[in-house]
Design a protein around this nucleic acid. Structure first.
Lengths: 377, 377
DNA sequence: CGTGGCGGTGAATCCCTGT
DNA sequence: AACAGGGATTCACCGCCAC
């Protein structure tokens, strides 16, 4: 029995979806709350929301080379206070809750600027958080001034309608996608760039366009073909494009005309995809995990104070508690110190530096292998 | 007026560090809020907190109106419980804020059950979030029922005392630790197990013992040797053990006697790094003394009249006897001339300007290094 | 045709000290 | 307190162009 027959056989549609037909596969140009109010209760299977982050940026930021960062400086991201942001969040979440089916679920993406407030509001609205998902950016923007850790991830919250509510989770699909290992709560994707990034006159159309790969995984995990997916902050329509490709129905809400124009054009051009192509889109590049020298020190594989030397024992260097190496007056990373003392342009510290082991000197790279064996499943 | 006179004139020390001495390197057996109340204001450099997030908080829980909640016997719905948890969070964060120094910072770790509420409370208390950090577990527990994504991470929030507040961030240490790449906001560590995991009669002593490697990185990043680090939810004392190893002072607060016993025994057994280790660590974070360009000229490292250029030899500038630089009609400091001729907002003259040396152009920063090595003991 | 250098850029709460 | 000025600060990827 096909999906369509199943729907037709049961009068569920009549109960759940009222006579007014849903504006399927269209973009509603309106304020997100007003537009949601126009939709019938319990009519949506999944919501994906990428609300404003309320970044609260200060002045300009320049890269070390002097060029200026093209920051998010749009009116839609400006709020007067946390209270104003919270009120906005609660208002749109309340409408989201009304229009979601009882077995629907909601996804919201954000950063530390807003995600804690969003998460609190989600819980307070009666949703039940199923997972928080970390999108690890493969190529984040660095912290140019060296004042904090590189902000290299964003957070998604996935929630059902309540503690006892049912929801869709395609466990098998996720496991298959992840080479027969359970899909974890941390996902790695590159940020949206290259030909996927929508541009007009050489400039990005939307400052925060999300990668399609992210939406693929979300929809593949938590919706079924034919499901209706709503995006109340549609932007340039990543949600719509991916929904079309995956055989889902979609509704987008967006205020700004230029975004709508770009989104419609993009979605019109999107081609439905068959399942066999999905695996490659999500291809697990399976990079061997990178291990930094400091991790060995942090994890006790090499004690601070240990003396390292080269194969010919010409130099001695002491391991610092912070993963640094000190040789004579020179201090720094294993690579830096190696190149400095040899007066060479570069040096692979992993193979240059050795430690005393039973049976003679061993390169510290051997310790890295041991660490990898112990920590990788 | 000299610096010493200035300090002596203000009774700052008396204000910030009160007569009652801090209970350094000890565990206070008490309710966390009560114990924090006993500590003087602005006396702590860093707080690391791993608050409980199951709702069995017992005596910790107060209703918003102040009345106590009996978590075992009271039947209260989840909204009551969120409110109670929020009240508890705000209460201990308020005390944390009072006892932290103006340039202190706070770390809190949690999972999706509580971290959104904690993050909101942190922002509402006036803290300024610096980063959210994802601890990616190398070996998480699988989701046995296959109903959700494997919950493979926890979240830490790092916050300063306010938007304009100073804080400690050992940028160089973190970069060294990470093989000369900026440390990112996602960290991978194995969960706490093996010999590190405290056990008694074959059972783990504490359900959520954190790995020492995690605390190690936190303290290396955001504290200095000798700093006072408070952990209001001490548990089995990971914070204390790592603080002792890294030459930090610590204060722990814990209610349960069996945890305290295990923690004390563990910390007694921990070995501190020797002094030379701490010294090199501090040297790695300490900024080298400032060298003015003029000093190089005065000391004969660079003769007046020498011609400097950039890497591409697009500009030529002449060194003046007073340490000024002249390029075309522009004259001034190495930085100012660099920024002016490039029409850039700023310029680091030390790396921009080069001189002719054997084997090609070298940045004048190399001369500064030579000068520093020659003049520093 | 491959390769390497160079320029551009991405949801960013991005300096500090002395006058 | 506002302002000026010294000087410290970046990673991965994509596209273009030269060779």
């Amino acid at each position: 029995m096909g999906v369509l027959e199943k729907v037709a056989a049961k009068p569920r549609v009549a109960k759940e979806a009222p006579s007014a037909p849903l504006p399927l596969d269209t973009i509603l140009q309106d304020d997100c709350i007003a537009a949601m109010k126009s939709l019938p209760a319990k009519s949506i299977d999944m919501i994906f929301a990428d609300p404003p982050y309320n970044l609260q940026l200060g002045g300009d930021l320049n890269r070390p080379d002097g060029s200026q960062v093209d920051a998010v400086n749009d009116a839609w991201d400006k709020f007067d206070s946390f209270a104003a942001y919270d009120a906005f969040t609660k208002a749109w979440l309340a409408e989201a809750r009304r229009i979601l089916k009882d077995n629907g679920s909601i996804w919201v993406i954000g950063s530390y600027h807003n995600i804690f407030r969003v998460g609190t509001a989600i819980q307070d609205s009666g949703f039940w958080i199923l997972n928080d998902i970390v999108w690890r950016k493969a190529n984040p923007m660095p912290n140019f001034r060296g004042t904090r850790f590189t902000n290299a991830h964003e957070t998604l919250i996935w929630a059902s309608m309540g503690e006892k509510a049912k929801y869709t989770f395609n466990y098998r699909s996720m496991k298959t996608l992840n080479d027969e290992l359970q899909m974890r709560s941390d996902w790695e994707f590159p940020i949206c760039g290259g030909p996927e990034r929508l541009k007009k006159d050489g400039h990005k159309v939307h400052p925060t366009q999300k990668p399609e790969a992210l939406l693929y995984r979300v929809m593949l995990a938590a919706s079924k073909p034919g499901d209706v997916i709503l995006d109340p902050f549609f932007g340039t329509g990543t949600t719509g494009a991916v929904a079309k490709r995956l055989g889902r129905r979609w509704i987008g809400i967006e205020r700004e005309g230029n975004y709508i124009e770009a989104a419609q054009e993009r979605i019109d051009a999107a081609l439905p995809l068959d399942e066999s192509q999905l695996k490659t889109m999500q291809a697990n590049t399976k990079k061997p995990p990178r291990v930094a020298f400091g991790q060995l020190v942090e994890n006790g594989y090499l004690a601070p104070g240990t003396v390292l030397t080269d194969t010919k024992r010409r130099w001695q260097a002491v391991v610092g508690a912070d993963g640094s190496l000190t040789c004579d007056a020179v201090s720094g990373s294993i690579h830096k110190v190696g190149s400095t003392i040899q007066n060479a342009p570069s040096c692979n510290g992993w193979t240059f530096w050795h430690y005393e082991a039973e049976g003679g000197l061993k390169p510290i790279d051997a310790l890295r292998q041991t660490y990898l064996l112990a920590t990788q499943p």
